[in-house]
Amino acid sequence: MVRTPLTPEERERGERLGELLRAARGARSMVEIAAGAGISVETLRKIESGRIATPAFFTVAALAGELGMRLDTLVEAVGQVPEQAAPERVA
């Protein structure tokens, strides 16, 4: 499967996500966080370095849970979802 190239904005969001997760991890080891989230250390390393700029939702949710972070906090810190991809809200 050929993946479409990421936009500069997507790459930048991925880098911000990585920085935020790395900061939230603090002194805890990558091994501890990855094991708790059910992902490989290499996957966590790639996310934190921005090499996986668009990780799967469930991966981000697992990391947020392991780090004690709220998903809405991540969204606010990393950047909003593009309008065309955002679901419509019911009032």
Rank of each mutant, 00 (worst) to 15 (best):
I39Q: 06
G14Y: 06
A91W: 01
L21Y: 13
E48R: 04
L17P: 03
P8K: 02
E19H: 05
R45W: 06
A34Y: 09
I52F: 12
I52K: 14
L6N: 07
T59S: 14
L63M: 12
R28H: 15
L21F: 12
R25I: 00
E42W: 00
F58M: 02
G18T: 05
T4H: 08
T43P: 00
V31T: 15
M30H: 13
I33K: 03
L71H: 01
L17C: 11
R28E: 15
R89K: 07
A24R: 07
R28T: 11
L21T: 01
S40N: 07
P87A: 09
E12H: 12
E48K: 10
L67T: 05
A35G: 09
V41S: 05
A53L: 10
A91L: 08
S29P: 07
S49M: 04
I33D: 02
L71S: 09
E48P: 03
L6K: 09
E15F: 09
A77T: 04
G68A: 14
V2N: 08
Q80N: 03
R45V: 02
V31L: 11
R51I: 02
E32W: 14
A91G: 13
L21V: 06
L71A: 04
A53Q: 05
G14M: 10
M69T: 12
L6M: 08
M1V: 03
A27S: 08
E48M: 04
G18C: 06
T59I: 11
R16N: 04
L44V: 07
E83C: 00
V31A: 14
E12P: 00
R3M: 08
P5M: 13
T4M: 13
G18S: 05
R11H: 01
R11K: 03
E10K: 15
G38L: 15
V81W: 01
G79Q: 09
E88K: 12
G36N: 10
A85Q: 09
Q80E: 15
M69E: 09
E10S: 14
R45F: 05
V90I: 06
L63K: 11
A64S: 08
E42F: 00
E19T: 02
M69C: 01
V81A: 09
S29K: 05
M69I: 15
A35M: 13
T73G: 15
I47A: 04
Q84A: 10
S40K: 01
G26L: 03
E15G: 06
I52H: 14
V41C: 00
T54S: 04
M69A: 04
E10T: 04
I39K: 05
T73A: 13
G50L: 06
I47C: 10
V2L: 11
R45T: 10
R22V: 00
M1D: 15
I52Q: 12
